[in-house]
Nucleic acid binder design. Structure first.
Length: 305
DNA sequence: ACCGGTCCCTGTTAGC
DNA sequence: TGCTAACAGGGACCGG
């Protein structure tokens, strides 16, 4: 599934391939894929047609394309890829060849004859148009952090771990102020964004912390290790997968082979921990999974109250 | 205000 | 072989 590194790869690909292009047509094949655009598919089409794509931005797993001739404060096409979403630029013969793709949800025609296709098998992803709002980023950025203009639905999303403006000290404090387990805190988008199940588990393994350790009882150093671990794994994945947009066009979905080789615990139930050889364990967690090394990441003695 | 549980959706795989 | 259930999971939403 697209995690933050894949979303950043897509953003980078959009920046290099569709900026400056004008929107000539929008074909919404499945209304569910634009469900977050409250005024409906026809309104979405009207707000995009004739506009020019002027910038590609991202926060966490949300990405957006800024639109020209802004209204007061500007507006943008907001995209979330969900579990299986892809944004694909198609040229020439590929435009027609892909027109019948079974999972093509929205097709955006561009003024050079190419199209930007939103393909999404499991339909958790969505597109919508929103005006930009200013956010003080109090959740993670703290006082003195730069203001940011983001689409309305992103206003409550904290800065992500790859954001240069992230205030690490304030984030550590915010995590320790929570009354929950460390993995829940890492996955809470209002505290820090962009950390999904994979990077939470890998970051906690690097930090040698069990996912259910209470945040309030962790030291600043321990929280810092968990955040740094997640950030480092994401940065490494980004470095490995950064060319997939150019190379494939058909697949910006993270299937570069990186995960097969590099994941220490995620999806590795029953296989040896790369650090100590103890077999990796899977636990049910938040309607999904949590993977740990039982030796490196011992379970807290007392469960959280 | 904060926290935890539930649900949305579809295709693949495991199990009986 | 054919069916059902489990699973993948970010984020909106809701009740306590």
């Amino acid at each position: 599934m697209p995690e933050l590194p894949e979303v950043e790869t897509v953003r980078d690909g959009l920046e290099r391939h569709v900026l400056g292009r004008g929107v000539t047509a929008v074909d919404v094949r499945r209304a569910y894929s634009v469900r977050r655009h409250e005024a409906g598919p026809l309104d979405l089409v009207g707000r995009l047609r004739g506009r020019t794509l002027t910038a590609a931005a991202r926060r966490g797993k949300f990405l957006w394309l800024l639109l020209d001739e802004p209204e007061e404060g500007g507006d943008a096409l907001l995209v979330h890829l969900g579990m299986s979403g892809q944004l694909l630029v198609r040229h020439e013969a590929a435009v027609e060849q892909a027109a019948g793709h079974p999972h093509l949800r929205v097709r955006i025609g561009l003024d050079d004859g190419s199209v930007l296709d939103f393909v999404d098998q499991r339909t958790f992803g969505h597109l919508s148009v929103h005006e930009l709002v200013a956010t003080p980023d109090g959740a993670a950025g703290g006082a003195g952090s730069p203001l940011a203009a983001v689409p309305g639905p992103v206003a409550h999303i904290a800065r992500d771990l790859l954001d240069p403006a992230l205030d690490r000290g304030a984030l550590v404090a915010a995590v320790r102020a929570r009354r929950t387990g460390i993995k829940r805190a890492l996955l809470d988008q209002t505290t820090v964004s962009g950390v999904g199940n994979i990077y939470a588990d890998e970051g906690l393994w690097r930090a040698r912390l069990h996912f259910d350790r209470p945040t309030a009882a962790l030291t600043r150093a321990e929280v810092g290790r968990a955040l740094d671990g997640a950030r480092e794994v994401m940065a490494e994945a980004l470095a490995q997968g950064g060319t997939s947009f150019d190379a494939l066009y058909v697949n910006v979905n993270g299937q570069s082979g990186y995960f097969d080789r590099s994941l220490a615990v995620y999806g590795q139930e029953g296989r040896p921990c790369p650090r100590c050889g103890t077999l990796v364990r899977r636990d049910a967690f938040m309607n999904r999974s949590a993977y740990t090394c039982p030796s490196c990441q011992p379970r807290p003695r007392r469960p959280r109250p």
